[in-house]
Design a protein around this nucleic acid. Structure first.
Length: 303
DNA sequence: CGATTTTGACCTGCGC
DNA sequence: GCGCAGGTCAAAATCG
């Protein structure tokens, strides 16, 4: 990713710093000797200012480079989290009920699989129950998300920003790893359920299957806001705080990512949205731009 | 002490 | 009707 790519894809990253109002060149129309002295001094000062301008330009490039690094890092992080999300109408799944599943035992038919990511199904050979007719047939939304986790971490927990209560755990026939059942507890009437199970092929991957739609706000939206604030604040000193900023991004990324996924499964849109969000938090933060302009102008006029 | 997790029992649909 | 398997319940245990 280079700066050209950056300009093409994220024009909002342009910091648009205006330092013209921070100082003026002295003017004079005298023609005597003193004026000649002043003229020499002025030229010397112009040279100094040119050098400072060059340095400021370089600094601007550095800042752009840092932003690019954030984007690169973000892309790497999202690569670690394979996301698939599929929705389907319950009418379709209901109508398919009764037709045999190509990958399952003759005893069970698909109920959820009708709406679940075919890629994973074909790869893992996982089987999902299809029989729960008593489940709300008017709740058509089924999402399946894959989270890469530390294989040594045996917890069936994915941080998606919502509040869940575990109400059951079961070992299924085709997967030795237990499946955990969760309900959303943020709102008492929220119908959303979640099943979490490790992938049989790669136990470092947690497969979370969401059913239904939340009927309340994303409870951690405030956390997201705090993350943005923290990000922009720490970027005031990018050279010194890169690590802490990136660590913070790492800790909050999954949460932010899921928030976006729920509204749009497209990774391209996701990336663009998040990068724009990062850029906005930099360019629209008056404290950031003011501090940057001050830093640059301070160097220009310190001599 | 309330919230959450654990876990065995129970419920339900489906195929035979 | 029976057995299987996934899903849910609820009492006990655990946690903060």
């Amino acid at each position: 990713m280079d700066s050209t790519w950056l300009d093409d894809h994220y024009p909002s990253l342009d910091l648009n710093l205006d330092v013209s109002s921070l100082g003026r060149f002295p003017t004079s129309s005298s023609t005597n000797l003193e004026d000649e002295k002043l003229s020499v001094e002025r030229e010397e000062r112009i040279d100094v200012l040119k050098a400072e301008l060059t340095r400021a330009t370089e600094e601007n490039k550095k800042l752009k480079s840092i932003t690019s690094n954030y984007i690169t890092l973000w892309n790497k992080m999202t690569d670690l989290t394979t996301i698939t999300a599929t929705t389907t109408a319950c009418t379709a799944s209901n109508s398919e009920r009764g037709s045999p599943s190509p990958t399952t035992s003759p005893k069970r038919k698909n109920h959820q699989d009708c709406s679940i990511d075919q890629h994973m199904e074909s790869n893992s050979g996982e089987e999902y129950s299809c029989k729960r007719v008593r489940e709300d047939p008017c709740n058509p939304r089924v999402w399946k998300l894959h989270f890469r986790t530390n294989p040594s971490d045996s917890a069936l927990v994915v941080r998606d920003g919502y509040q869940w209560r575990k109400y059951g755990q079961k070992v299924t026939r085709d997967n030795p790893c237990p499946r955990a059942y969760f309900r959303c507890t943020f709102a008492p009437s929220c119908p959303v359920k979640k099943k979490v199970q490790r992938s049989i092929e790669d136990t470092s991957i947690l497969v979370a299957t969401y059913e239904g739609e939340h009927n309340h706000e994303q409870p951690n939206s405030q956390v997201n806001g705090a993350a943005k604030d923290s990000f922009s604040t720490k970027c005031l000193l990018p050279d010194n705080s890169t690590l802490t900023t990136l660590d913070h991004l790492k800790s909050s990324s999954e949460l932010v990512l899921q928030d976006q996924v729920m509204s749009s499964p497209s990774q391209e849109v996701l990336h663009r949205s998040l990068v724009e969000q990062m850029a906005r938090s930099l360019t629209q933060d008056p404290a950031f731009t003011a501090a940057l302009a001050t830093a640059i102008s301070g160097r220009m006029f310190q001599s």
